[in-house]
Structures are given as structure tokens and as C-alpha cells.
């Protein structure tokens, strides 16, 4: 069985974001990058499945971007993926979902994976499109927003998170693609021995332009801080001062403190 996990490297969401020169996206300088949180669940679920099947499946982890994404790839290898594909694209920030999906599909088509795991969305772009687009381009069934996953004999039983705490159960036959929601499992931390072992695992590099040259279907502009709508007060200072101020405000503005 061949499994593909698609991961993205994104900035730490607690960063202070500034627009790049053309305001199409953020300025990358001074940002610390890490694996997209949704993708951590995708990696974990793939590794759990490999364990369930006695280690038989081979897991390939794939990421698109400049050399910095190799750090995220190495983490996935240390967690238990077997081999990696780095699709080199220095201008990854200007690639929109259709282009990213076309690149992944161009690679995946040549291998014929049985199962593809992706996060349900990225934390930075949040389009929730790439996974489903890859499945459509490959012509395989897919389902999204998994909070439960089971596999047996070529059949995936997926539990989808719907609104209001309701869940929906779906069955689909492999080859298939699923997108993972937060909370699907408990992502493990890589152990030191596994980090060392991961160093010997193979990372194959492709150039994005050799796989797909689809033009973009959308353009991006005016990356900005949202206009502040609220009339909220921002308080800064020492903890003691802040506590005093907050108590005064709560007594004044709410009926809950006497």
C-alpha cells in the first residue's frame, strides 16, 4: 500500500505580519516557520495506519516551497514517514490553490497512491481547497474535515465534523483522499532516536515548474491588518497596574462586580 501525506510549512500564527512590497502576501523576513497544524494530524493518521497494518504501507511525505520546507519534511520523517518529496518552488507564496493542487496531482499521478492525507486547510491561506482539488484532478473520491478515520480491506470509514457538534459517517473505497480536521488524533512528538534515523531517509527533489505550469485562476492584493471595528480599550503596563485598571473597569461597566 502506498500512502501520500501532503504538508505545508506556515509561519507561526503568533507572528506580527507585515505586507510584502506588492501587498499580495506577507513579508517572509523575521518569520519563524513550522508545519501547518492541520497537517500534523494528517501525518499522525498516516503513521497510525502504517502501524495498524504492521508496517507494510510506505508513506511518502510531500511539501512544496523553498529549502526552508525541508525542516517540516524532516519532522514528518522523524514522526514515521518513510521517504520524502520536496517540490522546489521559491515563489510558493504567489501560487494559489489551483496551481498547488496541479503540482501535487502531476507528481501523485505518476505513483498511483492508494491513500492521500492532507490537512483540511492551511493556517495562513485557509482556503480548504487544495486537498479536494488534488482528488478531483486525480479522479479519486475524497471527503473532508475528518475527526474520525478507520481503514480495513481497501475501505475508509470517515467521520466528518459538521456544524453544531453533529458528525457524519461516510464510507469510500481506495484509492481515496481525506482531509484532516484538528482533534482527529493526538500528534506525537518526534523522539531523538527517530530524529537521528530520519536523517538517513531519502528526500527526492523536483522543480515545481517541471511538474505543472498551470496559470493562476485568482490574484491577491491589499494584504493588510483588518480595520479595527470594535471600540475596545487596549491596556498595557505592569501586571499590578493592569489588575487595578481591570477591576475599576469591571465595576464601572458590568453588573457582575460589586
Amino acid at each position: 500500500m502506498k500512502i501520500l501525506v501532503c504538508i505545508k510549512q506556515v509561519p507561526d500564527m503568533e507572528s506580527h505580519f507585515r505586507p510584502n512590497g506588492s501587498a499580495t502576501w506577507f513579508d517572509e523576513s523575521d518569520l519563524a516557520f513550522r508545519m501547518n497544524e492541520y497537517d500534523e494530524y494528517a501525518v499522525e493518521e498516516a503513521v497510525k495506519l502504517k502501524e495498524q497494518l504492521g508496517g507494510e504501507p510506505e508513506i511518502t511525505v510531500l511539501s512544496i516551497g523553498p529549502d526552508r520546507v525541508i525542516e517540516a519534511i524532516k519532522k514528518a520523517l522523524a514522526i514515521g514517514c518513510d521517504r520524502a518529496v520536496h517540490i522546489n518552488e521559491s515563489a510558493v507564496a504567489s501560487k494559489e490553490p489551483w496551481q498547488i493542487a496541479s503540482i501535487i496531482a502531476a507528481y501523485a499521478r505518476s505513483i498511483q497512491f492508494d491513500l492521500v492525507f492532507t490537512g483540511m486547510q492551511s493556517q495562513d491561506r485557509g482556503s480548504a481547497q487544495v486537498g479536494v482539488l488534488v482528488a478531483e484532478l486525480l479522479g479519486i473520491p475524497s471527503t473532508t474535515t475528518l475527526v474520525g478515520f478507520a481503514y480495513a480491506d481497501g475501505v475508509v470509514t470517515a467521520t466528518r465534523e459538521l456544524e453544531g457538534g453533529v458528525k457524519g459517517k461516510v464510507r469510500l473505497k481506495t484509492p481515496a483522499l481525506v482531509t484532516c480536521q484538528l482533534g482527529l488524533n493526538s500528534p506525537r512528538y518526534p523522539t531523538l532516536p527517530n530524529i537521528m534515523k530520519a536523517r538517513k531517509k531519502e528526500i527526492t527533489t523536483f522543480q515545481a515548474g517541471d511538474l505543472s505550469s498551470e496559470p493562476p485562476l485568482t490574484g491577491s492584493s491589499s494584504f493588510r491588518h483588518p480595520e479595527k471595528k470594535g471600540s475596545g480599550v487596549v491596556l498595557e503596563g505592569s501586571v499590578d497596574e493592569l489588575v487595578e485598571k481591570v477591576i475599576v473597569i469591571l465595576k464601572d461597566k458590568t453588573a457582575v462586580l460589586r
Binding site: W98, M120, S127, Q129, V132, L133, E136, T144, T145, L217
Partner: peptide, 24 residues
């Protein structure tokens, strides 16, 4: 609507028509 139904179905339709999708 950007919901478990909408974000699941919208990209399928966009891919079939090969048109742009803007999410949320």
C-alpha cells in the same frame, strides 16, 4: 456557505468548470 457542506462541494465544482474559487 463556507460550511462542512460548502467547502466540501465547492472545489469539486470549481475544478470541473476550471474556474477560480475564493473561500470564506
Amino acid at each position: 456557505i463556507h460550511s462542512s457542506y460548502g467547502w466540501d462541494l465547492a472545489p469539486r465544482v470549481a475544478a470541473s468548470l476550471k474556474v477560480a474559487q475564493v473561500s470564506e
